[in-house]
Design a protein around this nucleic acid. Structure first.
Lengths: 345, 345
DNA sequence: CTGTTAGCGCATTCAA
DNA sequence: TTGAATGCGCTAACAG
C-alpha cells in the first residue's frame, strides 16, 4: 500500500495543503517544514499520485495520436516516423507526453472515451467520420493530419490534387502512356470498419486532370490502370509482380507511398528489369531513404516532420483556447534517376 | 461545462450508481432505465470522465515507453520503429494504449512522476541508473530493453558481446586490418545529463575478444580505431568523411547502427570509392531497408519487433503480479555484398 | 506561513 | 433492481 499525502501530513504534523505545497510550490512554506516534509516523504517513499493530481487539476499534460491502423502496420511506413518526429519535437518543447491510440476493432469508441488526454490528433481521419463526433462529445480539442479541409475542423495537409497533377505531368512528359498506379488502401478508418480515403480521391482527381489535358484517361481499356495496395514494401512487391506479368507491361509505376517502391525495385531486380531503362518508378512522400535507393527514387517530397510539428502546435493552441486555422504545406516534385523516358523513345 | 454523472442521474431521476451501471454493467439494471439513461446521456453529450474513472479503479490502461533521447532524435533510427511496432502489437492485443515519454532536460524526474501509466518500459537504461529507483519508489512495474542484466530487473536484450565478436571475426577473416568502428554515442541517459552505454561496453569487449585471438588490438598506433558517433545518417556521413581522409585509410568500416551506414555509403559515392572494392562496410541492426541499399549491407540482424513484443509481454505479466525473468534474444550474422576481402588480397 | 474545507467525477459496498 | 454513503489522492480557495 503506497503512502498518500495524508500519511505524510500526519507524520509531519502538518496539513495536506502544506505537503502539497512542498511538492508544487515550495516557496510558499518555510524552509524547515519543507525539509521535514521531504525527508519524511523520502523515508516513506511517497510520490504524488499523477492520476489524482490530474483529476484535481483537470489537465493531463498529454496529447493523443489516433492512428488509422494498428501500430504494427502503420510504422511499416517510415514516413509516419517523420510525422511522429515532428509531433515529438513539439511535445518535448511543451513538456507534453504523447499517447498513441490504436483503433482496435470494435472498441474504438472505448479507446477514445478512455483516453486521458488534453487533446487529440488524427492521421487520415476525414470530415464526416463519426470518430470526430466523439471528440466533440467529450469536448476534446483535436486537429487532423491529412484529413481534408472542412468547416469547423482544423487540419494540416498538403494540396493532394495539385501535387498529383504535377507528378502525372512529369510522367507523361517522358512519353509514358502505359502506367500502373498503386493507390493506398486501408489508409484511414471509419467507424463501421470500412475504409475510405479522401487522400486517395484527391490524388486520383489530380491524376485525371493531368491525363485529361493530354487527352488520356484511366480505365481497363487504356494503358493507365489503378491498383489498390497496402502501404508496405511487401504489398508493393506483390502488386508489381502481378502488374509486370501483364501482356501489355506498363512502362511506369507510380507508388503513392515511397515504401511500396522499394518492393517494386526488388521485384524488378528479380525479373531482370532495369530502372529506368525498362520501367520508370515514381514515389510519393520522399522518405529519408529514397535518395539512397538504387537508382535514387523520383518522388513527391512531403514535409512529414513539419506536418507533425504544425499539427501539434495547432493542437496546443486549441487546448489553450486559441482558434487556429487549417494549414496547407508545400510539396515538391523531386526528379531522381528512377524516372526516365518511356522505352523506345 | 461538461455534464457529469450527477447531471445524468438527476435528469433521469435515478442515482449515480444506476448511471454508472448503465455504462459499465448494463445487465444489472432494467431495460427501460438503461434506455432512459442512455438517451439522456446522449442528449447531454455525457461521456464518463476517464481520469475520474482511473482514479477510482486504480488502473490507467496504458503503459509508458521511456526513450533515451528526444523523440525526434530517436526516431531517426528505423530500428527503433521496429521495436515500437513490437510494443504496439502487444498493446493492441491487450487493449493498452502507449504513452511515449521523452527524457526532458532537467525534468525527467517530473516526467516520470507525472506519467499516468500502469507500467513502464525503458530503452537502453542500465542497472545503477537513478531513474530505476524512481520506478521503485512509485511502485511502478518496469522492464528494460537493452538495459543489461542485473539482479531484480527484468530485461530484454541480445548477447551483445557474442554478436560483436562474430561480426569482427567476419571482418578479420576477410583480411581487413585497418578498421574504423563507429560506436554509439548518446544512446542512453543518466540522471545527471551524462551519457554512458552498457551496450557500447559489451560490444567493445566482443570486438576485443575477436581481435585478441588474431593477435590484434585497438589503439591509435594500430589500424583499428574507434569513433564515437551519433545514431544518424548524417553523423555516419560526417565521420566517414573524416575517417576516409586519413593517410592510412581503413579498408573496412563497422557501423554499430545500420542507419549510419547509409551515410557512409553516401560519402563513399561522393569520393568515388567502391563498396566493397575499395572499402567494406558492416552494419548492426538489419533495418528493413538494409537489403535494398546498393550494395546490400552486411549486418548483424537484431530482432527489433520481437524485442518490443517480448518486453511488452513481460511488462504485462509484471503488472499482473506474475514474476517474469529476463530474456535474451538471438541475433544473426547477415553477410551481404558490402563485405568483401581487403583490397590487395 | 499554515490549516480547514470543499470539491474533482466516478466506482462500489452495503442496504433497502 | 436501485440508492446512499464512502473512498480514490490531490489541489485550491479561503481563512486565520
Amino acid at each position: 500500500m503506497r503512502a498518500t499525502i495524508n500519511d505524510i501530513a500526519r507524520q509531519a504534523g502538518v496539513s495536506k495543503t502544506t505537503v502539497s505545497f512542498a511538492f508544487n510550490n515550495p516557496s510558499k512554506i518555510s524552509q524547515e517544514t519543507y525539509a521535514r516534509i521531504m525527508s519524511i516523504a523520502q523515508e516513506l517513499g511517497y510520490v504524488p499520485d499523477p492520476v489524482a493530481r490530474t483529476l484535481a487539476m483537470k489537465q493531463t499534460g498529454s496529447i493523443g495520436l489516433l492512428l488509422p491502423q494498428a501500430i504494427q502496420e502503420v510504422f511499416l511506413n517510415p514516413y509516419i516516423g517523420e510525422i511522429l518526429r515532428g509531433i515529438g519535437f513539439v511535445c518535448d518543447h511543451e513538456g507534453l507526453s504523447l499517447s498513441v491510440l490504436s483503433p482496435l476493432k470494435g472498441v474504438l469508441t472505448q479507446t477514445i472515451r478512455n483516453a486521458a488526454v488534453d487533446g487529440i490528433m488524427t492521421l487520415g481521419i476525414g470530415p464526416g467520420m463519426s470518430v470526430l463526433e466523439l471528440f466533440h462529445q467529450r469536448g476534446l480539442p483535436f486537429v487532423t493530419i491529412d484529413g481534408g479541409n472542412a468547416e469547423g475542423i482544423v487540419n494540416v495537409g498538403i494540396d493532394e490534387q495539385a501535387s498529383s497533377e504535377r507528378l502525372m505531368n512529369a510522367i507523361l512528359s517522358q512519353g509514358h502512356r502505359d502506367i500502373a498506379i498503386f493507390m493506398l488502401k486501408n489508409v484511414t478508418l471509419s467507424e463501421n470498419g470500412d475504409h475510405f480515403s479522401l487522400t486517395n480521391d484527391n490524388r486520383l482527381s489530380g491524376f485525371n486532370a493531368a491525363l485529361q489535358r493530354h487527352g488520356l484517361s484511366m480505365g481497363a481499356h487504356t494503358g493507365i490502370q489503378v491498383y489498390h495496395t497496402e502501404v508496405s514494401m511487401r504489398s508493393g512487391r506483390e502488386t508489381a509482380r502481378e502488374v509486370l506479368a501483364r501482356p501489355r507491361r506498363p512502362t511506369a509505376i507510380i507508388c503513392l507511398a515511397d515504401i511500396q517502391a522499394v518492393g517494386v525495385y526488388e521485384e524488378c531486380k528479380v525479373l531482370g528489369l532495369s530502372i529506368p531503362g525498362d520501367i520508370s518508378v515514381f514515389g510519393f512522400d520522399d522518405i529519408p531513404l529514397s535518395p539512397f535507393l538504387s537508382p535514387p527514387l523520383a518522388t513527391v517530397h512531403q514535409p512529414g516532420f513539419r506536418k507533425g510539428e504544425t499539427a501539434t502546435r495547432l493542437l496546443v493552441d486549441l487546448i489553450n483556447k486559441k482558434t487556429p486555422t487549417s494549414v496547407t504545406l508545400e510539396t515538391e516534385l523531386i526528379l531522381r534517376e528512377s524516372l526516365g523516358p518511356a522505352p523506345g523513345l
